[in-house]
């Protein structure tokens, strides 16, 4: 593996290899010395053209715990704000001899384009409305851990609902690709205005109602609804959205025993997810956060530890 641009590029074996190593990396987090020497002497740049807290900081920690040097470059306060093109920024960093560039950009496909320009390994940390592969990997990792903890087997054959603002979500694309590769069936739940175009070719079920879906799912994944979207007329009011699609305390009871609730964050408590759901025993929201560093350590190891390609 040279780059991580899209879940579509990964084989099932590669996915399992990444998730299995993430399991080991979880253990490292509970050791007295959290550092492993595997990437000593390597340099990882976090290049974020869009804001991020958890993705950027978990990539930074992941690099540091593998003994790589990590630096952060954000568009604000860099030469990007002086008008430098994305290509020149990338070529500049590449010329400094960095080994990996973790990049987030508002343009769908921007990271794949960048991979054609540089010598370094590119990691997609979110490109527009396209993909966010490490988020999908850590969601799968958190789900796997939940299933294992409760003796419920593997993701293969499980049913996962993804509910929320799917049209603007890069998480949903990566998650659908990944969950299907791991053998799960996926049902997308959203009003017609929030469903991505071409969703009928994704090989998933689609529902405009949440209530009939909940009793059958093993994982209920709720995605953030951006309040600013309301101005775009995607749904009439917060109240109506909650009534139809919010994971309220009342809907919680519809979930079957052992089902878990996932949310990639940041959560709008009281909108797409109630506090009762977010803090319930079946919630894996915090596991998703703690999986973030472990999964990103595993990704960095897979891309950077071996010989130069």
């Amino acid at each position: 593996m040279k780059h991580l641009l899209s879940i579509a590029d990964l084989s099932v074996e590669e996915i399992h290899s990444i998730l299995n190593l993430a399991e080991e990396m979880h253990d490292v987090q509970s050791r007295p010395v959290k550092k492993l020497p595997a990437l000593r002497g390597r340099t990882v740049v976090n290049l974020f053209f869009e804001d991020s807290t958890r993705t950027r900081s978990s990539f930074e920690l992941a690099a540091k715990w593998l003994s790589a040097d990590a630096i952060n470059v954000s568009a604000k306060g860099s030469s990007v704000s002086k008008g430098e093109s994305m290509r020149d920024t990338l070529l500049t960093l590449d010329a400094m001899g960095v080994d990996a560039i973790v990049m987030r950009h508002a343009g769908s496909g921007a990271v794949r384009q960048a991979a054609g320009w540089v010598r370094a390994s590119m990691i997609n940390a979110g490109d527009g409305m396209h993909e966010h592969p490490t988020q999908a990997l850590l969601d799968a990792h958190a789900i796997r851990r939940h299933l294992a903890r409760n003796g419920l087997g593997t993701i293969d054959g499980k049913r996962v609902s993804i509910t929320g603002d799917l049209i603007h979500s890069r998480v949903v694309r990566s998650n659908v690709l990944l969950l299907k590769k791991l053998g799960a069936s996926v049902v997308l739940v959203a009003p017609p205005t929030l469903l991505p175009p071409g969703v009928e070719t994704w090989g998933v079920d689609v529902s405009h109602e949440l209530d009939p879906v909940l009793p059958d799912v093993d994982v209920a994944m709720m995605l953030r609804v951006q309040r600013e979207r309301m101005l775009g007329g995607y749904f009439p009011s917060e109240r109506e959205y909650i009534d139809a699609y919010g994971l309220t305390a009342g809907r919680l009871a519809k979930l079957k025993e052992g089902a878990c609730i996932a949310h990639p964050g940041p959560m709008n408590r009281g909108l797409e997810i109630s506090s009762a759901a977010a803090d319930s025993a079946g919630s894996i929201v915090l596991d998703q956060v703690s999986s973030g560093v472990a999964v990103r350590m595993s990704v960095l190891y897979h891309l950077l530890a071996g010989e130069e390609q």
Partner: peptide, 13 residues
Amino acid sequence: MYRDDLRAHPTRP
């Protein structure tokens, strides 16, 4: 992860 020849081989499991 502690090997001194990690970089001389394809990524090791």
